[in-house]
């Protein structure tokens, strides 16, 4: 506990390029950038594959492989191959590892939509794109957001580990502190990362509550209580 007081009580930790506010913003920036780029790739691809049903093997294989690949190894590999002249050798693996959870859940979300619902939409005269945008996406939204949340969890963790390969962010306190046996910095940094991850988790829960159509979430609730009633 004393270590935490040392870390958070030291005014030097609150200003300058190596202070908590800067590191916090860096962490947010890298995580958000990676998540944004991954979403840009994964959501359209997931929608396309889920809607057309073509290429679902790609999705399954990428999901399994992504779980098996060690993040630290990929980070070191990219840095050794591409150098550390810019942040991209670190951001690219962050993006690559963030894609599969979004891709899989978007795909599963679209594919899992009740076929009768889809047929009804076509029957009402909607075209392919309209069916996707006005029916399939809203119904699949809970799963798409779940994918985004899992991906965000992954990105926050990987950004932390990426501090080892020279990226800024909150991981720096932990990695540098460990290297110099500055345990106040290690524990303080760890607590900050844990809080950061919790805020991200809560943030996504709130986004889900706001964006998912009440019809969709309420209907799910009705179905749930129906299935579990005695």
């Amino acid at each position: 506990m004393n270590w935490l007081v040392d870390f958070f009580g030291d005014p030097a930790h609150w200003s300058g390029p190596y202070g908590i506010p800067v590191r916090l913003l860096e962490h947010l920036e890298f995580s958000a950038l990676a998540l944004f780029l991954a979403t840009l790739v994964a959501v359209p691809l997931g929608l396309l594959i889920g809607h057309t049903g073509r290429g679902h093997l790609v999705v399954v294989v990428s999901a399994n492989l992504a779980r098996a690949i060690p993040t630290l190894g990929v980070l070191v590999l990219f840095v050794l191959l591409l150098g550390t002249a810019s942040i991209w050798p670190v951001i690219i693996p962050l993006v690559l590892l963030a894609v599969p959870p979004i891709l899989v859940n978007t795909f599963e979300g679209i594919r899992g939509v009740d076929p009768e619902l889809r047929d009804a939409a076509y029957g009402m005269g909607l075209r392919g794109g309209q069916v996707l945008g006005q029916v399939l996406v809203p119904v699949a939204l809970p799963l798409i957001l779940l994918g985004l949340r899992l991906s965000a969890i992954q990105v926050v963790a990987t950004t932390t580990v990426a501090a080892y390969t020279g990226l800024g962010g909150l991981g720096r306190f932990v990695i540098d502190g460990f290297a110099t046996q500055d345990y106040a910095s290690v524990f303080g940094g760890s607590v900050l990362i844990v809080l950061f991850a919790l805020v991200v988790q809560v943030g996504f829960t709130l986004v889900q509550r706001v964006t998912v159509s009440p019809g969709v979430s309420r209907r799910l609730k009705v179905r749930d209580s129906g299935a579990t009633s005695r």
Binding site: V161, F187, G189, I193, V194, L198, Q201
Partner: peptide
């Protein structure tokens, strides 16, 4: 456990 799952491994090791 949902919350625990969201916590990155490195700070947990350190703590």
């Amino acid at each position: 456990f949902n919350v625990l799952y969201a916590l990155p491994s490195l700070p947990l090791f350190m703590l």
